[in-house]
Amino acid sequence: MSKKYKVLVVDDSAAMRMLITASLQDSEFDVAAQAKNGEEALKAFRDTAPDLVLLEIVMPGMSGVETLEHIMVLNKNAVVIMASSMGTDDAVQEALKAGARNFLQKPIEQEALLKVLRTTVSSL
């Protein structure tokens, strides 16, 4: 059996978490944990040691970029893909500078999601 990648999905929207989880069903990516904010994300990251983190930028409280910075302190090799509806150069640049490996602009369709996840893991 081919390797299953453990994914941590972080988004304040329950609808988005549900959609992403459904999109990854029957793929080589397994949603190991979900988190609705930065604090939950850091706990889930420590608990599950995911292969990949899919992280929304705009969240109440700790922002996605702040969460990313904390994750990189916990593991500087963490593989984090940022997601946002706002695909501005500034937002993408800030995320990549903070250590994100890739960027997904919403709305996220299943095919685009799988393509970005596969491209990201193939470069590891």
């Binding site: 929207s13 329950a14 609808a15 988005m16 549900m18 705009v58 946002s84 509806s85 706002m86 695909g87 501005t88 150069d89 500034d90 602009q105 919403k106 709305p107």
Partner: peptide
């Protein structure tokens, strides 16, 4: 229900996010 309200918020987020990308450009 809560999920529907949440999903509507997300649709709004997609509109405004993409609108912001235009303003940023």
């Amino acid at each position: 229900n809560e999920l529907v309200l949440d999903a509507a918020g997300e649709v709004l987020n997609v509109i405004t996010g993409n609108g912001c990308s235009k303003l940023s450009a």
